[in-house]
């Protein structure tokens, strides 16, 4: 394996220039840059997110302590918000213990920001402004998750049964063994990734909102249509670029979601994950009404450069890190 970087000098210059543009963008809007730890005593419970962990042998308890590398700075940043930080952003490394690919490296750079007083709708407009400022693209289209499915498939994602989704896979030529063992959300995600994503956001970014409530993650459930969550994702040229929420404030609901995740983990034979007590205590103290979003900087760089692989914008991807 070569010792040399996989990036060109120009790609490194572009990264520095992009970071400067982002910092100016937030400075102009009086959003404060913050810094939170990469290592944490707890981690996410999401069934499909896996965190790296390590042992801290110098803990004051005298016993080795498991520390987790963050999959995003969300929990720590929410603790700052609960401590009246006001609007904040962070550019940091995030780690996901998963495969590598054209768009994936297990260690990557993330931009995450939170806006007290914003709904997810208002935050979508700000994401749009950032994309126009960094990609010089046209303003984004907005599209509901349900509309995206109804336009590009015959499925209503909010009412379709598991067996309807399984037959839709076949109809769209997706050949996977034992599709009936996939749950509704995985089937929807598979159809979204392989059928819908290639057809949307080709010319300009598209913001897809109103995900099914079962995929709410840390978003509020929509008050008008409780079948959906106030969550959005941004797609552009086949790249999933950002994920945002109108943030769940209810601590007991948050605890329930963590516990439900862990139950699902157990049923799938996956290990339970430690629930972040600091986050739950912070939510009990009170999270301001706010919206937040995480955006992949490396993918943003790919779009700026028209790169075909993430290794074109990361100097030492995991295969030669």
């Amino acid at each position: 394996m070569s010792w040399q970087p996989t990036t060109t000098h120009q790609a490194r210059v572009d990264r520095a220039s992009l970071l400067k543009t982002i910092r100016t963008f937030f400075e102009d809007r009086q959003v404060l840059e913050v810094d939170t730890p990469l290592l944490s005593s707890a981690t996410v419970t999401d069934v499909h997110l896996d965190a790296f962990h390590t042992q801290f042998v110098h803990a004051t308890s005298g016993k080795p302590q498991t520390l987790w590398l963050q999959t995003s700075p969300e929990y720590a940043m929410k603790r700052l918000l609960c401590a009246q930080s006001g609007p904040i952003y962070q550019i940091c490394k995030a780690f996901r213990h998963e495969g590598q690919g054209r768009y994936h490296n297990p260690e990557f750079t993330m931009l995450e920001w939170y806006r007290p007083g914003f709904t997810h709708e208002k935050l979508m407009d700000e994401v749009d402004a950032l994309l126009v400022a960094t990609l010089a693209c046209e303003p984004a289209d907005k599209l509901s998750y349900q509309r995206a499915f109804l336009t590009h498939t015959d499925i209503d994602p909010l009412t379709a049964s598991q067996s309807e989704l399984v037959s839709a896979l076949t109809h769209h030529g997706i050949d996977i063994s034992e599709p009936q063992t996939l749950n509704t959300d995985s089937l929807l995600q598979l159809i979204f990734s392989l059928v819908i994503e290639p057809k949307i956001g080709a010319e300009r970014p598209v913001m897809v909102y109103g995900f099914p409530a079962s995929q709410a993650a840390l978003a509020k459930v929509n008050t008008h249509d409780p079948r959906t969550a106030d969550r959005f994702e941004v797609y552009f040229k086949g790249i999933e670029l950002a994920n945002g929420f109108y943030e769940l404030q209810d601590a007991s609901e948050q605890r329930k979601r963590f516990e439900a995740d862990n139950l699902e983990r157990l049923s799938m034979g996956l290990p339970e994950k430690p629930v972040d007590a600091h986050l739950l205590h912070a939510l009990e103290a009170g999270l301001p009404d706010c919206a937040g979003v995480a955006l992949g900087i490396d993918r943003l760089l790919m779009l700026r450069a028209g790169a075909t692989a993430i290794s074109d914008v990361i100097s030492f991807p995991v295969a030669n890190a």
């Binding site: 499909h48 997110l49 998963e98 495969g99 054209r102 995985s186 995600q189 990734s193 999933e240």
Partner: peptide
């Protein structure tokens, strides 16, 4: 191709040539 929605299950999308029939799928 590795396909992994941020919040979803990971899949591998694979293009394969069957070596006897020559079919690509």
């Amino acid at each position: 191709e590795y396909v992994k929605p941020g919040k979803g299950q990971a899949f591998n999308r694979v293009k394969i040539r069957k070596l006897i029939s020559g079919k690509v799928l």
